[in-house]
Design a protein around this nucleic acid. Structure first.
Lengths: 107, 107
DNA sequence: GCAATACTTAAGCGCATGCTTCACCAACCA
DNA sequence: TGGTTGGTGAAGCATGCGCTTAAGTATTGC
């Protein structure tokens, strides 16, 4: 999943697919590489569940599947929240300590 | 950034760091690999801006930096939103078409 | 039917990655 | 002071990844 998004060319393909479905050659057009290479990238994206595709006649049409994107987003946001919550608690703790010091100073 | 999160061992290190700062050997402990390897992974995470660390005495303490996580999260959610908006418009369009058909049928 | 189109598949190549070992240094502590 | 702990750096190796070429297959249009 993250592996699939790690490559800039694949991210560009995802970017393109955000704007709507595309055939393999449409995906290949802005990229400076063989159709073969594009197909291989596509296989990785499909493997990661990021893209679905179906072949009609001789043209394969691809589109984004947001399920996997959602999963990745969740993974990140969970971890970020976890850490930030900890950070907040630390802040609260420090503030409390600070308060205690002041009170001791006052007494 | 995604590259850095692509490796499961590095994700595990991030996971560990969510629960608070840790030394290099603490990070290494649950992983079945040399300290050397862990340091190398750490370098990647630091390179991606995911982790900051400082050395006090002979122990290096690492902690998460959520800035990069936030950036990754934003990248994903922007793309997801883009695609889902498109999807909604398509839904609206189809519904409208459907409505038009009904009206024509009624007229 | 024949050529062009739109992929598909397999083989191979070079470079990046992930890991190990080994040697080393800097703190800590008994 | 000398051994142990915690980390660093370089070298080397195996594997995986991204890409290309080349040959093949299935549709489509004339």
């Amino acid at each position: 999943m993250f592996q699939a998004l790690a490559d800039p060319n694949r991210r560009q393909m995802v970017q393109r697919l955000c704007e709507g479905p595309a055939s393999v050659s449409e995906l290949a057009q802005p990229l400076q590489m063989t159709l073969s290479a594009v197909v291989q990238h596509l296989a990785v994206l499909e493997g990661a569940g990021l893209v679905r595709s179906q072949k009609i006649g001789r043209v394969r049409t691809c589109q984004l599947d947001t399920q996997a994107l959602r999963a990745a987003e969740r993974w990140i946001s969970e971890r970020r929240a976890l850490w930030e919550r900890r950070f907040d608690r630390l802040g609260a703790f420090l503030a409390e300590q600070d308060q205690n010091l002041k009170e001791e100073g006052g007494a």
